[in-house]
């Protein structure tokens, strides 16, 4: 994804982007019949492909190969066989699912922690070249990942960590930092200075202030970024296929699925169930944490 930092004004607007903001206002009907029709058509076009995949994933293998999902309504047969094979079978995708999890968890925890420290320092500590360094970190957001990949892989090969999870963890950490530091800095900066002073007077050092005063106050912002980073890593393909060179041992679900799409033949019926398994996690996150998600996604639509 990509780069534009919402202005404070825009961020305020974005903060109100929750489905419940319009309660209290009078709700009118869609302006006219035509307007409703257009909206309905768009909504159907946006859901039908996903619905088709969902239905396909529950159809028997033979049906998937020989007819479209809409035929299900004439011959309603459902089976869990595809999911069974995807999760437990010989051509199992479960190992890739686990790889995705193993890749994602540290790739969220590590950059978020490092970025918190740096963001705090840029916001509240004094050291030489602080502002210059901060602008530099900010500017790094526009560097496309592609520019870093080949030499980075070279480093991993030279240091012998290639083929393990480390290249993925480290790469995701590095690529997350510019945006994470910038966003969290803005939130740290918003904490009133009097709180800092009060803690100082009480004899607290930076570490105490950081851990006891700051972190609890910016937890919502950290959560928003963590969710965004989680989705970014889980859905990533570029870092996955360039850095996960240990194939089955470390390759995440997205990379495996992308391979399966190319090799049509025997796995065509598994593709639908496999895709759904990979989609389910981010969609659950989306449904449960919609408020955070919207903010995180909008703020981070800049990354890449």
């Amino acid at each position: 994804m990509t780069a534009a930092i919402p202005t404070p004004a825009l961020q305020d607007e974005l903060a109100t982007v929750t489905p419940a903001t319009i309660t209290g206002r009078t709700r009118k009907r869609l302006t006219s019949r035509w307007a409703s029709l257009v909206a309905l058509i768009i909504a159907v076009l946006w859901t039908l492909p996903t619905f088709g995949l969902l239905l396909t994933s529950f159809r028997p293998e033979r049906d998937i190969r020989t007819s479209g999902w809409w035929n299900w309504f004439g011959d309603p047969q459902l089976t869990l066989a595809n999911y069974d094979e995807v999760l437990y079978g010989g051509s199992s995708l479960s190992t890739y699912f686990i790889n995705s999890l193993v890749i994602t968890v540290p790739s969220v925890i590590i950059p978020v922690s490092i970025a918190c420290l740096a963001a705090y320092a840029f916001a509240w500590m004094r050291f030489p070249f602080r502002d210059t360094l901060f602008v530099a970190v900010f500017a790094l957001q526009i560097v496309p990942l592609q520019v870093a990949l080949i030499p980075l892989l070279r480093i991993y090969v030279d240091t012998g960590v290639n083929g393990t999870f480390w290249p993925l963890w480290i790469s995701h950490t590095i690529f997350a930092l510019p945006l994470a530091i910038f966003l969290l800095h803005n939130f740290f900066k918003e904490v009133p200075g009097e709180l800092m002073e009060a803690a100082r007077v009480d004899g607290a050092g930076h570490v105490t202030i950081f851990l006891r005063v700051m972190l609890p106050l910016v937890t919502p912002a950290i959560a928003a970024f963590a969710i965004f980073q989680f989705l970014w890593v889980w859905n990533d393909l570029l870092v996955a296929i360039t850095m996960a060179t240990g194939a089955q041992d470390v390759q995440p679900l997205t990379a495996r699925l992308a391979e399966l799409v190319g090799s049509r033949g025997s796995t065509w019926h598994l593709l639908s169930a496999g895709a759904f398994v990979s989609i389910v996690i981010p969609v659950i996150v989306f449904l449960l944490l919609q408020r955070y998600f919207v903010r995180g996604l909008l703020a981070g639509s800049v990354k890449g």
């Binding site: 946006w46 859901t47 492909p49 995949l53 859905n235 699925l257 639908s272 981010p282 989306f286 919207v294």
Partner: peptide, 20 residues
């Protein structure tokens, strides 16, 4: 939510959806 949902899906997932 209907229009926004695809943003939560990976581009690989979206590609597979449209492959069908």
């Amino acid at each position: 939510a209907v229009i926004f949902m695809p943003m939560a899906i990976s581009l690989v997932g979206a590609s597979i959806i449209w492959r069908y």
